[in-house]
């Protein structure tokens, strides 16, 4: 008996999900951050964020097709975290790292928060 593991599978599938997002194929939710709107797939958001997991497993909220985030969330920070969800790459510009970290805290993404903390401490 054998088993073949395609080691690139996870990243190849994630790249295709990001292609679906950029072509707005089967996206099923709009995230409103202040005045900016972001289309996404609920399943990808739930797989990455504790907050979205809680929202979309709540029978009263799982059918919503638009979610407004707290106005304290920075749209640029959210855009970077959303891009991370779909690419595994977190862009850390000096001017935005706090916005990114605060967005990750709000979205309950502890591993990203911890990594941002370590990055900030190491660059101090």
């Amino acid at each position: 008996d054998s088993c073949i593991q395609f080691t690139r599978h996870a990243s190849d599938v994630l790249l295709n999900l990001n292609r679906l997002r950029s072509r707005d194929i089967l996206t099923d939710v709009t995230i409103l951050v202040n005045r900016q709107q972001f289309r996404a797939h609920k399943t990808v958001l739930m797989a990455c964020s504790g907050l979205f997991y809680t929202i979309f497993t709540d029978s009263l909220k799982c059918n919503l097709n638009a979610i407004s985030l707290d106005p304290k969330v920075d749209p640029e920070g959210f855009a970077i975290v959303l891009e991370f969800m779909y690419t595994s790459r977190l862009t850390l510009k000096e001017s935005l790292i706090m916005a990114v970290m605060n967005t990750a805290i709000y979205l309950q993404m502890d591993h990203v928060v911890d990594t941002c903390h370590r990055f900030i401490k190491s660059s101090d």
């Binding site: 990455c48 964020s49 504790g50 591993h111 990203v112």
Partner: peptide, 22 residues
């Protein structure tokens, strides 16, 4: 250097784990 920026490889867990059942 990947894509012109300094890329740091983080080997740890990236996102939460969804429980098998709630």
């Amino acid at each position: 250097y990947e894509g012109g920026v300094n890329t740091i490889k983080e080997m740890g867990r990236s996102v939460h784990e969804i429980p098998r059942q709630d």
